[in-house]
Design a protein around this nucleic acid. Structure first.
Length: 392
RNA sequence: GGUUGGGUGACUGAGCGGUCAAAAGUAACGGUCUGUAAAACCGUCGGGCUACGCCCUACGAAGGUUCGAAUCCUUCCCCAACCA
């Protein structure tokens, strides 16, 4: 493969590449490159939005390069301001450690473990920024409790702002931490989401200051969430998690709008877009759901998820595996719903019955009848099933 | 440090002595429609009950004033804006 082809493949889908010349130079140097990707373990759940950048990282690995996965255990205690309109909560050590563990576990669903170097940035940031006297938590606490607006209110700062001179480093503290990571791991290339561009460029600055060769920077587009409006994020609840069960994953993919499906094809797969658009949307969506599910759970599971989907939703038949609940004595149906864990409370149970959401063996139940224990299937809404067995 | 304005249900945000389990929007959940599309429309949306009514717990925390408080007073905690 010549360099042209490599470059084409590696920059496919990228938003920014800074700079192309440097990237070419690095790629053609014959060296094993160190490709950095940093992640704050602020949330333990990775979703398919993260997979956009991770897949790109994987591409580098497949070319023989090393992925340097930085776990921002130190920076997680500060919170990346990128794309946020409010200060992030500060996490304690234990949470961060736990998150980091699950994080890497999920990341290796995409990355090649053997070509990945995992580093925790507290390794170098702690001694670098925290004096033994002040201690990390003191520093973090102070930085957390002083807001920018408070600082900028000061007259001398206002004057400086008016004069156009740069303000304190505090606001750009985070990018500096992240940038220093690049120095510490001697990154050749850094990948990130589109909203990371400022931070990534800071890495170049810091490396230059340290006399290192500057990393090339490449950003990937942000994946829209399943609502089709905001970016995919756990806090918006519009994500498809890498750890989602096959049926869940398949189902979530099926419920997105047609236009969103196209974006997903573009950002998550290598499929030919024109061909996709020519297909029936339903078929195309099933294919997409299958591709994604297969990626994280294997082809067999994906097949099963598709079969399940078609069975339960397309043909409205019963699913293969249902949770079993043993009913021992006669009682109100509403009580059975609560006991079987299908609803939160009695009121909700009654409401759902009144709304025609409850079925016994496929027959709508319109009143809160007395249920005599027997083997049957209890269904609430479209997707909640419970197999009822007569108790001993 | 000073001044002013705030803290309301999953979230945004009205209410400012009784008619308030608390408007409106979002989210969520059911239903109709369908490709579980999306959108739209209808309904529900603190908990419980012997249920067109009743009880309990709720409007930052703790007290108080009232027949009656999310609404007034006191103290405390937290936040924001502005001024130093």
């Amino acid at each position: 493969m010549n360099i042209e082809e490599v470059l084409k493949g590696i920059t496919r889908g990228a938003v920014d590449v800074i700079s192309r010349e440097e990237l070419v130079k690095k790629l053609s140097s014959g060296r094993k490159l160190r490709v950095k990707f940093g992640a704050d373990p602020s949330s333990p759940d990775l979703h398919i939005g993260h997979s956009v950048v991770l897949s790109k990282l994987r591409q580098f690995q497949d070319l023989g390069h090393t992925a340097v996965l930085i776990i921002g255990d130190f920076t997680a205690q500060i919170g990346d301001p990128s794309g946020k309109d409010a200060t992030r909560p500060v996490l304690d050590h234990e949470t961060v450690a736990n998150n980091a563990r699950t994080y890497t576990g999920q990341a290796f669903k995409v990355l090649d473990r053997d070509k990945t170097e995992i580093r925790f940035n507290s390794e170098w940031l702690k001694p670098f920024f925290a004096s033994p006297a002040a201690g990390v938590s003191d520093f973090v606490n102070i930085a957390k409790s002083v807001t920018i607006s408070q600082l900028l209110e000061r007259e001398d700062f206002r004057a400086r702002m008016k004069a156009g001179t740069p303000i304190s480093l505090l606001e750009i503290l985070y990018p500096i931490f992240q940038g220093y990571d690049s120095v510490a791991v001697k990154a050749d290339i850094e990948l990130g989401g589109q909203d990371q561009i400022f931070n990534l460029l800071m890495g170049r600055n810091m490396q230059k200051l340290s006399g290192q060769e500057q990393q090339a920077v490449m950003t990937m587009p942000l994946l829209p969430g399943t609502d089709g409006e905001k970016k995919m994020s756990k806090s918006y609840g519009n994500y498809v998690g890498l750890n989602d069960l096959p049926n869940e994953m398949f189902g979530k993919m099926m419920s997105v709008s047609d236009s969103l499906m196209c974006s997903y094809y573009e950002l998550l797969t290598f499929e030919d877009l024109a061909a996709v658009k020519a297909e029936h949307p339903m078929e195309a969506k099933k294919k997409l759901a299958g591709l994604i599910t297969a990626r994280y759970h294997g082809g067999e599971q994906a097949q099963a998820a598709r079969a399940h989907f078609e069975q339960v939703f397309s043909r409205k038949e019963l699913p293969e595996n249902m949770e079993i609940f043993r009913a021992e004595k006669a009682g109100k149906l509403s009580y059975l719903l609560v006991a079987a864990g299908l609803v939160k409370g009695m009121n909700e149970a009654r409401r759902l019955i009144a709304q025609g959401a409850v079925r016994l063996d496929g027959e709508k139940v319109s009143a809160d009848i007395i249920f005599e224990p027997k083997d049957c299937v209890l269904q609430v809404g479209r997707r909640q099933f419970r197999k009822i067995e007569k108790g001993a």
